[in-house]
Design a protein around this nucleic acid. Structure first.
Length: 477
DNA sequence: TCCCGTTTTGA
DNA sequence: CAAAACGGG
């Protein structure tokens, strides 16, 4: 029997600073076994999409370095956590097992089963919140249940949080050896997280991952960008958002670290409200474990989405960025080529899919799940439902974005469209966001052949808007 | 975190 | 006559 040790099971908390259970484990004085399990098998766990796996590899590499520089070591396994974790705990003689909580239904159920199994082995299993400002069950409405509207939720949460200062990273870790008799641990490279599709993701921008990268990004954002966040955040053509989403998703930075670093400022308030939406999404997912596949508002169960052959053609056109609406296409291509999409663009393309094309939001949700490096079950599901009109505190259904106006308003110089749709780059501003309205001479000048080098709109805006409003009326009738 | 047709305002 | 304001989806 090896020396007793503490086992830290890393999941979406891939950092060493402000990490409550790592701090506890380090303070226990026991040697530490740090473990990551790539689990695509446990029932109900949603396997990460391709872009997310690619990003995960970066996050894990960074965590490996952070741990190694403190004397720790990160080990990897692939397979069902439910069997692997107890096996490792037994072989390693782990007295205490630590992890940070996750909040989807299947994740919670798995944690409950694991805690029970570990306790039956006579071990202490301890979990803790590392990714939220408050536990989803701690924010309660006056009527005693979960909130359904953002503003009162955020007010209640803000009253609740007087966050203790973030925890420092443990300075020295003593690594327990990988136990004999445990399943063979793998090198990170052997997890094969890069997409198998040739070269997809090869061109993704690759800013520093890990907590060092997150800290750097936060610092730049707070120094230069947050001041004008409220006015610039919707501009597609500017780097005016925090871009912390993937860092947050993988737990490379905690919301507590962000809050405690943000200066009191109107721009910062607006930004912190976005952290509030993140908390709200998790709150909703916790209260509605089926949020990713079931309409939050059941009235939408009868919504007449199109399911005919023509809709089957429109979905790939949307995915590929070939709808004929420049701002939609630029956004969808930004997603495919960079693994990221601007928040405003996400709303525009989601509105286009669900309202202009009358395609079920779940189709869009699953495409985002596979292609976003920051894909997050709570944010993705809650936000798609919000745009589709069936979600909590949703946009009224009749809020249908006009992709031309959105383009003209939020990409007024056309830099965003030109960057992602180079075939449109030669068009003047007057028709960049509506090439179908360009005179033949302008098209010729720009070297653009509509229907050949760039598609005509797959659906007419006025027609689609009318059709969507009618569909909504049909549902409510 | 909207759009659009219509009316009103005000230079 | 253009811009602002309004009301409804």
């Amino acid at each position: 029997m090896p020396q007793p040790c503490a086992l830290v099971w890393f999941r979406n908390d891939l950092r060493v600073s402000d990490h409550p259970t790592l701090a506890m484990a380090a303070a226990s004085g026991l040697p530490l076994l740090c473990l990551y399990i790539l689990d695509a098998e446990s029932p109900g766990l949603r396997p990460p999409g391709g872009a997310s796996l690619w990003r995960l590899d970066r996050a894990l590499a960074a965590l490996e370095r952070e741990l190694a520089s403190r004397g720790g070591e990160l080990h990897f396994l692939r397979g069902p956590a439910e069997t692997l974790l107890p096996e490792v705990a037994r072989a390693a003689n782990a007295q205490r097992i630590f992890w940070s909580r996750r909040y989807s239904g299947a994740e919670i159920a798995l944690d409950i089963r694991l805690k029970q199994a570990l306790r039956e082995q006579g071990r202490e299993a301890y979990s803790c919140n590392a990714s939220l400002l408050a536990e989803p069950w701690q924010v309660i409405s006056k009527s005693g249940g979960a909130f359904k509207v953002f503003t009162p939720f955020w007010r209640a949460l803000r009253e609740k949080i007087a966050p203790p200062p973030p925890l420092p990273a443990p300075e020295r870790l003593s690594a327990a050896p990988w136990p004999a008799g445990a399943p063979q641990s793998l090198a990170r490279e052997a997890l094969r997280l890069a997409p198998s599709r040739p070269n997809w993701a090869a061109g993704f921008p690759d800013p520093d991952a890990g907590e060092a990268g997150a800290r750097k990004r936060l610092g730049e954002f707070l120094d230069h960008t947050v001041e004008h966040y409220a006015t610039n955040r919707d501009r597609l053509d500017r780097d005016a958002t925090s871009r912390l989403s993937a860092h947050l998703h993988f737990g490379e930075i905690s919301p507590r670290q962000i809050i405690s670093a943000a200066p009191p400022h109107p721009g910062a308030d607006k930004f912190l409200a976005e952290l509030g939406w993140r908390e709200f999404s998790c709150h909703l997912l916790y209260a509605n474990p089926d949020l990713a596949w079931r309409n939050f508002n059941p009235r939408f169960d009868g919504f007449p989405y199109r399911a005919d052959d023509s809709a089957q053609k429109d979905l790939p056109a949307w995915r590929r960025g070939e709808t004929g609406y420049p701002v939609v296409d630029a956004a969808m291509r930004e997603l495919w080529t960079t693994g990221f999409m601007h928040n405003r663009a996400r709303m525009v393309v989601a509105s286009f899919l669900t309202k202009h094309l009358l395609i079920d939001w779940r189709e869009g949700e699953s495409w985002f799940w596979d292609t976003l490096i920051d894909a997050d079950e709570a944010n993705n599901a809650a936000s798609w439902q919000w745009v589709a009109g069936c979600g909590a505190d949703a946009a009224p259904y009749f809020r249908i974005f006009n992709p031309v106006l959105q383009g003209e308003k939020f990409d007024p110089d056309g830099a965003y469209v030109r960057a992602h749709c180079p075939e449109l780059a030669g068009l003047p501003m007057s028709c960049l966001h509506k090439p179908w309205a360009a005179p033949a001479s302008v098209l010729a000048e720009a070297g653009l052949r509509l229907g050949e080098t760039y598609p005509r709109p797959i659906v007419d805006h006025d027609f689609a808007r009318r059709r969507a409003l009618d569909a909504f009326t049909m549902m409510t009738a």
